[in-house]
Design a protein around this nucleic acid. Structure first.
Lengths: 352, 352
DNA sequence: TTGAAAGCGCTAACAG
DNA sequence: CTGTTAGCGCTTTCAA
């Protein structure tokens, strides 16, 4: 039908639509971007023509004048980490629902790469979601002044952030362990540079004190499955009988090493992870862990960002209340998912 | 030092550099993009000034005139699938090594979304990597005429593609099973719409015939862990004693269900997966699977794409031979990784 | 409500 | 080798 005269080799521009409808390009632009400022009739005519001709707006050009790119950059520190899979999934969903584009950037755990990316991105994206930043609060805050920014799992003063309430999860985890008769718990720390790591440790210390549980700490450990082996060895050496790992990756790695060494989980040692990433439910044994709404964190981050950019579709992106914008820092609750890696404390048995 | 006069609120443009160095903007442009076509001295001066002023080129504007965006879109059909994370990791690494940007798009298994994305992307990216496309070969080929395109795990005539040689892997898997005494193998099929699925099945039939093994097939099954339960039930019902699953996700799901039902793996049933995704090594029992160089596939795809776009840095992106471009279709070898989910065939025991 | 005109930041002829 | 001149496709004053 309409294919013969449509498959020109050149892309359709507003000029083509203007010619086709007999109006000026500027009117076409308006009809497409600010439909209210145009006569209903011509508006209709223009939109029809646009559809007819298969018009696709050129975001580059649009960005050049308006300064808005309709893209957001999502920075992750290690694309390898399954934790981010879920974040990315969340951001991607929310973004595409709003018709926006996601720029994915892997900063590879490097503050320099992060800074560089942030600098280079300013022109390509309208906003940034920063996860597990290696930058200082001050640096983040300073950058946030120039570019709309939402951070995940970090709390720089004055910068909107999405937090996953792992401290709350830690509390549940300790209580669970206590209910199983444990009186000592070992924290298997993640990287020193991780904000969440310190946060979890402090939460652990606090709860432990309240519940009269003794705590110890080993680490730091890189957040990889492979780090679990060393962590497991250290835990065994420390005579631990229950441990809470910085994240599921380390915990899963520990599980493997413990089995290898003949340390039974949970009979000899209870292990709890954190995050409930892909795999936590089918490792051996399935991991008791703090289930975090990671994907939701990604979605919420985008929602906050889009809200600040004034780009909320409104219909389908409910905010947390009747207020204008979502709160400046939202904390998403975590809950403990008990699986088979935790069990009763071994009675009166402590390796020397 | 240089902060006082640097932190203007406006971004630095080539014009600023031109003013600072006393040359014309076009000279600045050249000095930055085609350094050879400019006097060494001025070139140096300009580059110094650019660095001094903290110049960051505006890709949007650059794209508008040159038509090149220095971005590539990577389309995946389901961002949830761990398989794609390795692909994405590969593309991301290779892209950022070349200083390019990655646009990640999740088409959510929908051909319409895929078409829409492809249309909308043409202006935002210089090329596209298409994984697990839901489009027909003809559609892909047609699109490839307009936009540089590389497909992964698909082979539309005339379109450059990166294949993972799972057929080769299937052969190894069957041989492995035969060496363990199995004479029957059940193929647990993936989605009907999957090109790889048919490809694996055909490879299986071929090898089986050659080795005198009987084959059967159940499915289709969606490529999720959750689909594994039904698959396991069907496999048991079919009296299978060895099966090869379309992918690790399904295989891992089967493992869980089989354990639940008291079917021992590998004593009662051997299970082999495909892909060797994150988790295949720590599920219970660890999965024998075809290890695919997934990340490498992503890297190679980008390399081919960049090669076609004439954007190969040259230094660090070796091609496969002394030829100009990498071959039009490269097949990456797969190898079988034997873990604990496969074992000797149960002797003379067949459930009714 | 619409059109004309200017210009976003950059590149690409074309002269000089 | 370098400057001048046009735009890329779109938005956005400013008039009409």
């Amino acid at each position: 039908m309409s294919s013969a005269d449509t498959d020109a080799t050149r892309r359709v521009t507003i000029r083509d639509i203007a010619d086709a409808t007999g109006v000026a390009p500027s009117t076409v632009s308006r009809a497409l971007s600010l439909p209210d400022r145009v006569n209903r009739a011509t508006q209709q005519r223009i939109q029809d023509a646009a559809r007819e001709l298969g018009y696709v707006p050129n975001q580059q050009a649009r960005a050049l004048t308006s300064g808005r790119t309709r893209a957001v950059a999502v920075l992750v520190s290690d694309i390898t980490n399954p934790f981010y899979f879920d974040v990315i999934r969340g951001t991607q969903h929310q973004l595409s629902a709003a018709g926006w584009t996601q720029l994915l950037v892997d900063t590879e755990e490097s503050a320099d790469a992060e800074t560089a990316a942030l600098g280079a991105i300013a022109t390509k994206a309208d906003g940034v979601v920063l996860t597990a930043s290696r930058l200082s609060d001050a640096q983040i805050a300073r950058f946030a002044e120039r570019t709309p920014l939402v951070v995940v799992n970090r709390r720089p003063p004055g910068v909107p952030s999405v937090l996953i309430d792992t401290p709350g999860g830690v509390e549940q985890a300790v209580q669970h362990l206590v209910s199983l008769g444990h009186r000592d718990v070992l924290y298997v720390a993640g990287p020193d540079s991780s904000w969440s790591n310190e946060r979890r440790w402090r939460a652990l210390v606090r709860v432990a004190k309240r519940l009269g549980v003794r705590v110890a700490r080993i680490g730091p450990h890189a957040p990889f499955v492979d780090s679990g082996a060393a962590a497991a060895d250290a835990a065994v050496h420390a005579g631990a009988t229950a441990c809470i790992a910085f994240n599921d990756l380390i915990a899963i790695g520990m599980l493997a090493r413990l089995r290898e060494r003949g340390v039974r989980v949970p009979e000899d040692m209870s292990v709890v992870g954190c995050d409930d990433i892909f795999g936590a439910d089918f490792c051996n044994p399935p991991l008791t862990t703090m289930t975090s709404p990671i994907e939701r964190a990604g979605r919420v981050a985008i929602r906050m960002l889009l809200g600040r950019l004034g780009a909320l579709p409104g219909d389908e992106l409910p905010t947390d209340g009747p207020g204008d914008h979502p709160a400046e820092a939202v904390a998403l609750p975590t809950h403990l998912t008990v699986r088979e890696s935790t069990g009763p404390a071994p009675t009166a048995r402590r390796p020397s």
